[in-house]
Every structure is written in structure tokens, then in C-alpha cells.
């Protein structure tokens, strides 16, 4: 296959990917309640409305809390699994890792439904932020493992042994040598888990308690046409935020590679 037509195709494909997102800022700053063309003028009052909306502020607060907790716990679990993955084999290891990675290929609604049954009907718990966190940790852990696997597999296994040979205990060898080398992976994993959790709707809609998360709140807004420009403004902010987080995650990943002295070959997954 030749390059030039493929290049044109790839660029058109990128345009297709970006088409919806390009509209966001247009309508976020458009001085009209109806989301349609033609545009009617520049305004920033959708952003001021956004800030003034107390319910939304609370939803954002909930989501940030959930995302932060998810990032921490998913990365901790991912750290355990990825480190174990880089170590010696034992019977059943492949199967266990495959099982932990399963949420990656499970329809999210199955995760949502099964947890709802257990939490509400079996355990009789009230839904709250922690029920959402528990589910988000489950679906984010495979992503953390994938990212951290990369970080651990780039490590020369004799590096930790060298530290122990030079007088460090097993734990301090991990702390002094392995941890700094995989730290970029840890940060990158936390940022990715944070981003996934912040945006997750399908599960959160089932498991959210009296205080909705941000996507659940947005879902509610989508039914009221008058609120739509505010959603656009919020969307614009979210896009900017996730792009920033992703760039930071990517920079950390690259720094990790550079630290380990490895040539860059790919992206996140």
C-alpha cells in the first residue's frame, strides 16, 4: 500500500475523530440557548452560569473525590499485580492475572448490574460515593496494570539484585532503585485512572447515591434544552482538563523511558 493516499485517509479520519469536539467551544461561547447553526454572537455567560450552579459544583466535587480515590486504589492494586507479573512464575499465575484483567473486556453494564445487586439487594447498603469508587477501582485496575507492566518489564531484573548485593535489604532495594524507576509509570497510571473515573457514566448511573457524580448530573441536564449551553461550557473545560492531564501523563511516561535508557516506541496501551 502506498503512503500518500493513506496519509490523506488518516488525516480525514482524524478530522472525523475531532469533528464533534471542535464544536464544543463554538457553542460554549455562542450567545444562544439553542444548540444549532447559525451562531449568534460571543458570550462567556454560560461559564459564569456554570460557576454559579451549586448543584453542579457539588457533582464536580463528588467526581473529583471519586476519581482521586479510584486513582490511588487502582494504582496500588495495579502496582501489586504488575510487580508480581514481572516476578517468577507460579502455578495459576497467568490465569489469575487474566481474571484481574477481565473487566477490560466485560460490558460495563454487567459490572454495574452485578454490583448493584450485591450492594443493594444482598448487602442492603446505601449507595454513595464509595460504591461508585469500588466499581471504578475494579474497571481501572486493568488499565493501571497495563501501564505499570510496561514500566516493570522495562526494568532489568538484576538491578534490584544488584542493590541487595551492595548491602540493601529487599525493601530498601525496592524503595531506592525500583520505585524511582517505575515512578513515572505510577503517576501515569494515576492520571489515566483519574481520567477514566471522572468520565465514567454507565456504572456511575447505577451506583451513584443521593449526590450524583458529574457525568450523572450532565445526563440530567441533557434533558433540559435550556441547560445545554452550560453543558457545552462544562464540556469545553473538561476537554481542556483531560488534554492537560494526558499531556502530563505522556510526559511522565516518556521521562520514565528516558530514565531507564530505552527508546520510545509507543503510546499508552
Amino acid at each position: 500500500m502506498r503512503g500518500a493516499p493513506l496519509r490523506v485517509y488518516a488525516i480525514l479520519y482524524l478530522l472525523f475523530l475531532y469533528a464533534p469536539i471542535a464544536l464544543l467551544p463554538l457553542f460554549a461561547f455562542n450567545d444562544a440557548t439553542i444548540i444549532a447553526f447559525p451562531l449568534s454572537g460571543f458570550t462567556t455567560h454560560w461559564f459564569t452560569d456554570l460557576v454559579a450552579n451549586a448543584a453542579l459544583r457539588q457533582a464536580v466535587g463528588n467526581s473529583l473525590f471519586i476519581a482521586a480515590m479510584t486513582a490511588i486504589f487502582a494504582t496500588l492494586l495495579g502496582l501489586c499485580a504488575a510487580r508480581a507479573g514481572a516476578m517468577a512464575r507460579f502455578p495459576g499465575k497467568g490465569g489469575i492475572i487474566g481474571f484481574v484483567m477481565l473487566p477490560l473486556v466485560l460490558p460495563e453494564i454487567i459490572v454495574a448490574v452485578s454490583l448493584l445487586i450485591v450492594l443493594r439487594q444482598v448487602l442492603g447498603l446505601n449507595l454513595n460515593n464509595w460504591t461508585v469508587i469500588s466499581a471504578h477501582v475494579l474497571i481501572c485496575t486493568p488499565f493501571s496494570i497495563a501501564i505499570l507492566n510496561g514500566a516493570f518489564q522495562n526494568l532489568d531484573p538484576s538491578i534490584e539484585e544488584a542493590a541487595m548485593d551492595l548491602g540493601e535489604s529487599r525493601f530498601s532495594a525496592f524503595r531506592l532503585v525500583t520505585l524511582p524507576l517505575v515512578m513515572p509509570g505510577i503517576i501515569s497510571s494515576m492520571l489515566i485512572a483519574f481520567t477514566i473515573s471522572l468520565d465514567e457514566f454507565i456504572i456511575a448511573f447505577f451506583l451513584t447515591g443521593a449526590n450524583p457524580t458529574m457525568p450523572v448530573y450532565i445526563w440530567g441536564l441533557l434533558r433540559f434544552p435550556a441547560q445545554l449551553p452550560v453543558v457545552m461550557a462544562l464540556g469545553t473545560i473538561l476537554v481542556a482538563l483531560s488534554v492537560t492531564l494526558l499531556i502530563i501523563a505522556e510526559l511522565f511516561r516518556r521521562r520514565g523511558l528516558a530514565r531507564a535508557g530505552i527508546k520510545d516506541t509507543g503510546g499508552f496501551l
Partner: peptide
């Protein structure tokens, strides 16, 4: 070590 295991960081 065979790979030298020089700490890259």
C-alpha cells in the same frame, strides 16, 4: 552482573 545492572537513574 551480566547486564551490569548499572542504576540508570
Amino acid at each position: 552482573f551480566q547486564s551490569y545492572a548499572v542504576f540508570p537513574h
